[in-house]
Simulated scan of single mutants.
Amino acid sequence: MLSTLRFESKDVTRVEETWKQFVPSAVLQNVDPQRFRFEWRSAELADMSVVEYALAADIRSVVEPEDQLLVCRVESEHVELGSGHVDIDGSRPWLTEGRQVWGRWEDDAKVRALIFDRVAAQTLARRMSGNDAYRVRITGLAPTGRSAAEQWERSFAYLSASFAQAGPEDELILAGLRRHALWVTLTSFETGFREALEGAVQLRPATTTLRRAIDFIDENAHHPITIDDIASAVHMSTRGLQYAFRRSLDTTPADQLRRARLDGAHRELLHGRAETVGQVARRWGFAHPSRFAAAYRLAYGVAPSATLRRGRDD
């Protein structure tokens, strides 16, 4: 279930209490209440959250997340970040799974964060990597390089905008966003995830396995499944499944799932019982109506609105 929150406040206590709902260890220290101004926006699923807030204050903040993965970016003209006596580059995001991180800044700051329940993230990471022995191990707070930091920033902007547009009923879309958020986090930092991916390829999948995978997709496309769920259902690694589809069918499991969902939307439009094209698109996991319309026209030769009109006339 998706829960969203947005507010502005000058009440330091309320702000700290709200932040603690997401990161229980969070503490705001040395706050000047005369200068304090706060804007908050968040989206929360059962096991992950997307948080953005803007602060106007001279402040010191401390986080030491327990049972969480926290990746954060503090954007401010005058910011100091560190963990113990180790400095953190304030121009890039940082990741912690329990190590205390402190921040100190003056004037205005914008904070962006992804927060994952550690147990749920571990489970999903194993499914994505196809390695049941994989453990999320963070060997450094900093991203692997400049390009990785920039990729995380771009992905956060995409996730923030997508969560803002999503509703609780958009289960298929939310499942994809959750997977993307964890994937980009684990691949942007030293977590051992890339190594787990590289060792997970199954080179000689049986044709029957592909048939089972396609059957699973067709039967479950209306549920919030991902390619990791498909791989798990046929007892393969995600990388192995991708290799199998590419080698035997010259496609990917993601494309196969997308086609199955497009077909489901087509059938629903054809029956003429849909409210609007946009609602049908979102129900089948297509967050962008224009992209859905383009894909639909390519697949069926007509606009989805034409199919809906035809269904209503029949």
Rank of each mutant, 00 (worst) to 15 (best):
M1W: 11
L2I: 01
L2M: 06
D11I: 07
D11W: 02
V12N: 03
V15T: 15
W19T: 10
S25E: 11
A26F: 15
V31W: 07
P33V: 03
P33C: 04
Q34Y: 09
R35M: 10
R37A: 15
L45G: 10
V50N: 00
A54V: 10
L55P: 02
A56E: 15
A57S: 14
I59M: 12
L69E: 10
C72W: 04
R73W: 15
H78A: 15
L81T: 00
L81M: 03
G82L: 04
H85A: 15
V86T: 13
D87N: 12
D89Y: 05
D89V: 02
G90W: 01
S91F: 07
G98N: 06
G98C: 07
R99L: 13
Q100K: 14
A109L: 04
V111P: 00
R112K: 12
L114M: 07
D117W: 03
A120H: 05
L124F: 02
G130C: 05
G130V: 04
I138D: 02
G140M: 06
L141T: 00
A142C: 09
G145E: 09
S147Y: 10
A148R: 07
E150D: 15
E150N: 13
S155M: 10
A157F: 09
A157E: 14
L159H: 09
S160F: 13
A161F: 05
A161Q: 10
A161V: 05
A164I: 02
Q165C: 09
L177Q: 04
T185Q: 10
T185S: 13
L186W: 03
S188M: 03
F189I: 01
E195G: 04
E195D: 14
G199P: 00
T208V: 12
R212I: 00
R212D: 07
A221W: 08
H223C: 13
P224T: 08
T226N: 02
D229L: 08
S232A: 15
V234M: 07
H235R: 15
T238I: 04
A244V: 05
R246C: 10
R246M: 14
S248L: 11
D250Y: 14
T252H: 08
R258Q: 12
G264I: 01
A265P: 09
A265L: 01
H271R: 14
G272A: 01
G272R: 00
R273G: 11
G278A: 15
A281I: 01
W284E: 06
F286I: 01
A294Q: 12
A294P: 06
R297G: 09
R297L: 12
L298P: 01
A299G: 06
G301R: 00
A306F: 09
T307R: 04
T307N: 04
L308E: 08
R309D: 14
